[in-house]
Design a protein around this nucleic acid. Sequence first.
DNA 1: ATTGCGTCTCAAAGCGCTTTGGAAAAAACC
DNA 2: GGTTTTTTCCAAAGCGCTTTGAGACGCAAT
Lengths: 381, 381
Amino acid sequence: MASIIKTVKQIFMLFVLQCTKSNFALATIIESALEMCHSYSMNLKELAKHLNLSPTTVSRALNGYPEVGAETKRRVGAEAQRLGYQPNPHARRLATGRSHAIGHVFPTDRTLMIDPLFSDFVAGAAEIYAAHGFEVMLHAGGSEDEISVYRRYAQGGAVDGVVVLGPRVNDPRIAVLNKLKLPFIVHGRLDEHDDNYAWLDIDNRGAFQKATKLLTDLGHNRIGIINGLEDMTFALHRKQGYEYALRDKGISIDPMITSSGLMTEENGYRQTKRILQIANRPTALLLSSMLLVSGAMRAINEMGLHIGKDISVIAHDDGLPFLNAEGLVPSLTTTRSSIRAAGSRVAELLLNIITDADAEKPHELWSVDLIVRGSTGSVRV
Amino acid sequence: MASIIKTVKQIFMLFVLQCTKSNFALATIIESALEMCHSYSMNLKELAKHLNLSPTTVSRALNGYPEVGAETKRRVGAEAQRLGYQPNPHARRLATGRSHAIGHVFPTDRTLMIDPLFSDFVAGAAEIYAAHGFEVMLHAGGSEDEISVYRRYAQGGAVDGVVVLGPRVNDPRIAVLNKLKLPFIVHGRLDEHDDNYAWLDIDNRGAFQKATKLLTDLGHNRIGIINGLEDMTFALHRKQGYEYALRDKGISIDPMITSSGLMTEENGYRQTKRILQIANRPTALLLSSMLLVSGAMRAINEMGLHIGKDISVIAHDDGLPFLNAEGLVPSLTTTRSSIRAAGSRVAELLLNIITDADAEKPHELWSVDLIVRGSTGSVRV
DNA sequence: ATTGCGTCTCAAAGCGCTTTGGAAAAAACC
DNA sequence: GGTTTTTTCCAAAGCGCTTTGAGACGCAAT
């Protein structure tokens, strides 16, 4: 049945081609009818026949190989365009062994997936992929664990590479991916000087060190921090920066005014409240995400304190479009780095790795701007 | 060169197989060596040879066709498992014409992509896809417009179906997809009684009607609304519900206390401030998203008003995990519907459509709970 | 012994593309 | 003019799977 339909379509197709060739009056009408002939997709062989060329030549012409003459190339290109020919992606993948797709895997049992940072990162990456004719494949949760997904990806060449998100301390994924020889890049990194895998990271340590230093310079010596989950390397690095800056000034670290957990409005509120209720309460607060801010501000307001006066606040701003640090009152001092831009750059680097099989593995460390606004002030005496 | 490596691998592979067959002492060691032989992926033919069966039989056994005996099936399954055989996805797709992938396209020039609702929706959907062995393909921005992406998808069968997100008034996508015969489902819908395409929507109209009614019943007759972009159907429907409920009580609609725009913290703040500064200011406020809430609360606090007393607030809560309406102070009255659950259900429905080619197109309207909490109170006199 | 019917298995033909290894025609050299 | 080189093209062989159509076998019915 299906094949009958197909045959009919082919005949019809040939008819239309004849018409358009001979500038037949009905051509226009029929061409629009062709449009309706919904998803008829001509294949390479047909296109070749229509052009009186072999499939080989047509394929080469379309893929820009040098073995085919310029004029032929042009002719083929124009006709392919006119007839809306699209090579079948699966056939191409099978033949070339390259999938032109990048995999992104998110564990759903963790915070990461539900983290809105994700969508912004992927938005940035996806634009680059799209520009290079790559697709992005997503995998979330399900029964399969992240590592077996990678294994599966590597096996059949389902994707040409993957990006690893939200690296954790001692993250097992890196070793596996290296073993699988699946090109990958990590957004973030495990240790400062890792060089056996590609990564792009922001200088979390430096950022929080700078932020802490700003506060100590303003006279603060009781500084609280509300951080992300402590097995995430970004959170660890931020904490290190914080501790480093404190030690530098001879200020001791008080775990009571430290917190690590989910970056939600609610947690921002709770932890802020907890920390500010401590007898010797901090005069400044570092927040690891803008997502914590409104909760923290709520807690601060409730306690009758004023941001920038009674308590200084610095938050890390990933540039989420729905949370503007500058628009707050008072405007927020932040360490800022666009996660979307990071997504784009990560995509670029990964595509490079994929094309230049054995090029040097890139390591890119982005410094983070400390933008001083109204939420930080010298400590009140 | 590559082919030499491959040959070596195959020989090695055969060696390992022999060892494991004969329970050779070295088997364990070698098996682990095999593990290291990174991404060696055996193919169907090899597996068949190793089993002394034809590729046909093995393929059928693995895909559960009835033509192959139970015992053979078991044997094949066990051996495939043991050797970690995975059919090459591209070959399979080419042969079957089905891609086992679902497409999701996001325009990046609009708000939608950067909307964190997206990640939650996709998280829900992706789990279902994963459970059914489907991949999710994402496309964002780039130069290609959304409709040509669909066209491309339809052509080569790159995906088996797509989900349309954030439908707009007079959305052109639906007509195109219908013409392309590409299975699809819309999250949301254009008009109340649309039945020429599959959709799942929440009862936005009913939700905001209920919410508005709650407020009028509490004596409010000046009710403001801060809505999403007005060409999004969800926003339109919510507005209709709002207007309907007001008309029902004979309350006139004042465009001055109405707003539609991006759902960001900042816009929440601005619009709330604007609306509350109007001479005859509203005593209640409807917010179309939790993302607007903290901005709105900020504006309200700044003006020295108290939520639930001076002004009642109801927000729509999509169940974003980082924004908890119940944890706020006062806890927020909301119209609530989990966008993540919607994602899951949309995925299920789409998979049904794909398998049951010409089954009835599903239309599912989810009623929305109105959860009354502390942010609504009777109007002060 | 022949036929009929299940059950189990296989060889071979695709799916639509790329790519290898020439071959024919055109151009350039001696 | 004959030989080499370059240009331009092609036939055919895969890529790894599914699927069609049919063969081989055992067993009951004729």
